[in-house]
């Protein structure tokens, strides 16, 4: 028997200035999986992540998280703290690398002792601990953002184009960290990207978002090799899909 989903979305809808940008009939996210959602710009990927992180309230529908229906995006703090996002552009505070990585722990009233140093070593930034975070390169800053998210041991890690504009070395490193953390801690990962290759490398299941709608969702192997929907097939081939 499958464990209950960590997220269940029903008739989830979001609108901005009267325009519907997301309209998902149903989506279940399994605990411990890496779910890759691909789609072109404007498909509603980032909007979906903001809703899953309870950063905004949906226009309609329901989000059930860990078995609890969340009314109007108002998740209680203890549930909200089980989810975090690494955004495409790392937003770091004007402080050292160490202070940035320990920020989430301090928010929770925890003393960031050895965890921060271990996490910095894990992302290959142990030697940068005392450096101002904003003096690092783009790839290093994104690794700081990833370490800051992982050190709080979230139940769900949301990744919004986490390696866009990064060099292949940092892309490989970040993917390896995500894969390792998921395997080691069973963290549910939801990755949204327009990079089909990255989704294929990381995801257990994959889906296509197009015009705010979930077109197809399947096991990664099926999704990338024998997709059911012609739009998925076209997107996976690298063709323009609208």
């Amino acid at each position: 028997m499958n464990p209950p989903p960590i997220y269940q979305l029903d008739a989830l809808r979001q609108t901005y200035a009267g325009r519907t940008v997301l309209d998902i009939d149903r989506l279940e996210v399994r605990p411990g999986e890496i779910l890759g959602l691909v789609g072109p710009s404007g498909a509603g990927k980032s909007t979906l992540l903001r809703l899953l992180n309870f950063l905004e309230a949906p226009a309609g529908g329901t989000i059930t998280f860990a078995g609890q229906p969340i009314p109007a995006g108002q998740a209680p703090l203890e549930l909200r703290r089980q989810v975090t996002t690494v955004f495409q552009r790392p937003v770091l505070q004007q402080a050292t690398v160490q202070a940035n990585v320990g920020y989430g722990l301090r928010l929770r009233g925890q003393t960031p002792d050895g965890q921060v140093d271990r996490m910095l070593a894990r992302v290959g930034l142990a030697d940068f601990a005392r450096q101002p975070a904003r003096s690092l390169s783009g790839g290093e800053m994104q690794r700081v953002a990833l370490a800051r998210a992982l050190v709080i041991r979230p139940a769900v890690l949301l990744l919004d184009e986490p390696t866009a504009n990064l060099d292949p070395y940092n892309v490989g490193l970040i993917e390896e960290i995500i894969r390792g953390h998921n395997a080691e801690h069973g963290t549910t990962v939801i990755l949204v990207t327009h990079n089909v290759f990255q989704a294929r490398r990381l995801a257990h299941r994959a889906g296509l978002l197009l015009g705010g709608k979930l077109i197809e969702l399947a096991a990664a192997e099926t999704f990338f090799t024998t997709p059911a929907d012609p739009r998925t097939a076209a997107f996976v081939r690298g063709e323009m899909v609208y």
């Binding site: 950063l55 703290r81 975090t84 996002t85 955004f87 989430g104 998210a149 709080i152």
Partner: peptide, 9 residues
């Protein structure tokens, strides 16, 4: 948005 996402009140 980032600090809220990290669990800030």
């Amino acid at each position: 948005v980032q600090v809220r996402s990290l669990g800030a009140t």
